[in-house]
Design a protein around this nucleic acid. Structure first.
Length: 472
RNA sequence: GUCCCGUUCGUUCAGCGGUUAGGACUCAGGAUUUUCAUUCCUGCAACAGGGGUUCGAUUCCCCUACGGGAUACCA
């Protein structure tokens, strides 16, 4: 049977980086196995409807290069891919469960449920529904359903254990006594996650359920549903959670968690994917930079880690810098231009300036700051810089430099190198005493991008002007 | 409270009964470079604790501690 995986987020308005990793693993595994990857929107909670959430979801996935084979906008005979549009399917299945005696209507009020839970806690007993409505006769149930609000619950086994195999966790064993009579249909008529998920996964022929560890305790309910329907259950793959620095579940409170936040901060989708993919799995070896294709090639679903992983932005920073440094020039220039902000630069020489800062970027957002040296007036030299300027040799260097530049038609990075060699020969000044005064003379600073770029960017006239201003 | 899951350098990932416990990030030092950055080299740094099993445990089992998750008519 060919592999089918799915990413099934609820549309909350943004894509959590933890979700991104889940999506990524699903995607990578499907591609690797030559299978299918589908996107399903789990929008069964009407209270959580967020305007534009689906568009945002689709957009984020597109930017990340995580392509689905079927899903919203890519419908096929297994759709629709919105759970809110599949209610008739769920209704039929629920009816079947009720007919079989595996599900029942529950008329208990939220107040009673709260009180029950409180009492259970006090008695140090497991919490969960006590099964009060389990025994209501059919006719009575039918009758009350006409006037009263109700939910439909799953009648889970009371005794024994649910044992199953998870590709990440290995053998897992949970006592049925711990498993609640889960609500399957809410009083508004919509299914809960548990029902919709199982039904959809079956009809969409999902073979591997790859999702976050928070779902592990719910697996027995799901497996029981598969059993009731006489369906074959998919493989379970529960991923370790992504953690904050303090090791709690990665949350909004402690920093950015949305994919769009990171993209807005100038991280590349490639770096983000790469970084996240390696949180929970690693092919071993020295290299840690993997393209999507390489991830697909080397990924091993059997080697996913069990422990939660801290989302450490330092490593992301390093990785993102690597991606920018190694980015193809055309692509880099195109992307970098989007990040200029209100920095005013010489449009004609912009590429030169951008190339000059390429190796020094952590994220694209650093661009304006790094570009500062190319824009506006030179900085005022500090005392150390002034000392350099006052050296005897500096005068010689400046004179020779201006002379060479003046004789030139155009000024390119390579010309500059040649010129400096000539200046060195003529003046006998070399090393730091040769280069640093020129740097300071042109920028006022002792640090900055490679001089050649700056020289080319400034152009002949500006070079002369700036150097002359120091020539006494 | 109850149940489930987890625990190797600060972080991340290797290791799958015998290793000087390895790589990457961070940090420190050094080399290269006109400077910063890049690049390269070197270094610091870990098997949570206690019992077993075994000739031998980081690796297998149990207990404890700690951490996390689930306990919703949210997913």
């Amino acid at each position: 049977m060919s592999v089918v995986t799915r990413f099934a987020p609820s549309p909350t308005g943004y894509v959590h980086v933890g979700s991104q990793r889940t999506a990524l693993y699903n995607y990578i595994f499907a591609r690797q196995q030559g299978g299918k990857f589908i996107l399903r929107v789990e929008d069964t909670d009407q209270n959580r409807y967020v305007e534009g959430a689906v568009e945002n979801l689709l957009f984020s996935l597109e930017q990340l290069g995580i392509e689905f084979d079927a899903g919203p906008g890519k419908e096929d005979d297994k759709g629709p891919y919105f759970q809110s549009k599949r209610n008739d399917i769920y209704a039929k299945k629920v009816q079947k469960l009720m007919d079989q005696g595996h599900a029942y209507r529950c008329f208990c009020t939220p107040e009673r449920l709260d009180a029950l839970r409180k009492e259970q806690m006090e008695n140090q007993a497991p919490t969960g529904y006590d099964g009060k409505c389990r025994t209501i006769p059919n006719e009575e149930s039918e009758e009350r359903a006409k006037t009263e609000k109700f939910v439909v619950r799953l009648k889970t086994p009371d005794q024994g254990f649910c044992e199953f195999k998870d590709i990440v966790r290995g053998d897992v064993k949970i006592a049925w006594s711990q498993v609640d009579d889960q609500v399957l249909v809410k009083s508004d008529g919509f299914p809960t996650y548990h029902l919709a998920n199982v039904v959809d996964d079956h009809y969409m022929q999902v073979t591997h359920v790859i999702r976050g560890e928070e779902w592990l305790p719910s697996v027995p309910k799901h497996l029981f549903l598969y059993e009731c329907f006489a369906w074959e259950a998919p493989q379970m793959v529960h991923l370790p959670l992504l953690l904050n620095t303090d090791r709690s579940k990665l949350s909004k409170r402690q920093g950015d968690v949305a994919v769009e936040d990171y993209l807005k901060k100038g991280y590349t989708p490639e770096a983000l994917n790469n970084f996240l993919a390696l949180l929970g799995w690693n092919p071993g070896g020295k290299n840690e930079i993997y393209s999507m294709d390489e991830l697909i090639e080397t990924f091993d679903i059997n080697k996913i880690t069990k422990a939660g992983a801290v989302f450490d932005v330092q490593k992301l920073n390093w990785m993102n810098g690597q991606y920018i440094k190694n980015m193809e020039v055309e692509k880099y220039l195109k992307e970098a231009r989007k990040w200029l902000g209100d920095v005013i630069v010489n449009e004609e020489k912009l590429d030169t300036a951008l190339m000059a800062v390429k190796t020094s970027l952590t994220t694209f957002k650093d661009i304006p700051e790094k570009l500062a040296v190319f824009t506006g007036e030179p900085a005022i030299p500090n005392s150390e810089a002034n000392e350099m300027l006052e050296l005897e040799s500096t005068k010689l260097v400046f004179m020779a430099y201006v002379e060479k530049i003046a004789a030139l038609e155009d000024l390119k990075v390579d010309d500059f190198k040649t010129i400096m060699k000539e200046v060195q020969t003529e003046t006998g000044v070399k090393g730091k005493n040769l280069w640093m005064p020129v740097r300071i003379g042109l920028t006022g600073e002792m640090h900055g991008p490679e001089l050649g770029y700056i020289v080319e960017y400034l152009g002949k006239e500006e070079n002369i002007k700036r150097i002359m201003s120091y020539k006494l």
